[in-house]
């Protein structure tokens, strides 16, 4: 445990030493904080129509002190909606990426270690799945099982498990014949011990970088699906959905589009900078699909 904490601090120290990685880390931290505290910090509920003293809806109000990011065509506070939406855009990809990484790592370790027909079967199956463009596959799955947050998580898991599997399998292949693994086999250690205690630490650098990258792509995919109106329903503060809503009124309320679009861009840039920093620290040069 102390070892893990020590290593984590070392990674953070190295990240902080690189300006771009530090920026990425700070951006991600900021958004995690927003996701955690956003609803508390938001001055209004995400679906409330702001009204003046006469009860009239305050639509299309430009950014001001009362409404930091202005109000949209319905009179909703864009700042509050962006804060509320952070949770959705981080939690859904976060859960989905975690599941995909756990599944992909387990499968990658197994098929990389054992090889043989099961490796062929799973690898070729996943190759066929990866041949389908991500968004097309997402559309097919969502229109089949229906649109909801859980559906979006399922879509991301289906899309990213094969990719993580492929990366971990590749790393496992180069480790299964190294001396300490052979020694563990000779000691008569169980397969689970060999996979998770001997091989897993060796593929960890690849795994960390891959997880960060998948998280970044998952954010973008979630926003894209939200933009297409899949997985979210009005009056959701999903940033992708907000961009889509604001797109139709862009000529009259441009600020309703600027801020959610800017938030998506900033978060994706932040996660990518962080992933790039991790890649450099771990000197991981594996294939980034």
């Amino acid at each position: 445990m102390r070892m893990i904490v020590k290593q984590t601090f070392e990674v953070l120290r190295q990240l902080s030493a690189r300006p771009l990685s530090l920026i990425g880390m700070l951006i991600v931290l900021l958004f995690l904080l927003i996701a955690l505290l956003g609803p508390t910090l938001a001055p209004y509920p995400y679906d409330e129509f702001a009204r003046d003293a006469d009860g009239m809806v305050q639509r299309r109000v430009p950014p001001s002190l009362a409404f930091l990011f202005g109000t949209d065509q319905f009179g909703r506070d864009v700042f509050s909606r962006v804060l509320w939406g952070a949770r959705e855009i981080i939690v859904i990809p976060g859960i989905a990426t975690t599941i995909a990484v756990i599944l992909g790592t387990s499968l990658g370790l197994l098929i990389g270690y054992f090889g043989g027909w099961i490796d062929e079967l799973i690898s070729r199956g996943f190759d066929s799945l990866l041949a389908i463009p991500a968004l097309v596959l997402a559309l097919v799955v969502l229109t089949t099982i229906g649109s909801s947050g859980i559906s979006v998580i399922l879509v991301i898991v289906i899309l990213y498990t094969p990719i993580v599997t492929r990366v971990i399998r590749s790393a496992t292949l180069s480790l299964r014949t190294v001396g300490y693994v052979e020694a563990a086999k000779l000691r008569g250690e169980s397969t689970a011990f060999i996979l998770f205690r001997e091989i897993l630490p060796g593929v960890l650098p690849a795994l960390v970088v891959e997880a960060a990258l998948r998280f970044s792509y998952a954010i973008f995919l979630t926003a894209s699906l939200g933009f297409l109106g899949l997985g979210v329903q009005p009056p959701s503060p999903d940033w992708g959905y907000m961009v889509n809503e604001a797109r139709e009124t862009f000529s009259r309320t441009p600020w309703a589009l600027w801020f959610p679009a800017g938030a998506i861009a900033l978060l994706v840039i932040g996660v990518n900078l962080l992933a790039d920093g991790l890649r450099r620290i771990f000197r991981y040069e594996g294939s980034l699909i």
């Binding site: 679906d47 409330e48 129509f49 065509q73 319905f74 109106g229 329903q233 009005p234 009056p235």
Partner: peptide, 28 residues
């Protein structure tokens, strides 16, 4: 139905109806 701004109408109705003790879950 996702046509002619009807999802927007549903968004406004949802707010108005909430005042009238009717909660709706919009499915476009």
């Amino acid at each position: 139905v996702d046509a002619l701004g009807y999802p927007d109408m549903a968004t406004v109705l949802r707010q108005q109806w909430a005042e009238g003790c009717i909660d709706v879950n919009i499915l476009v």
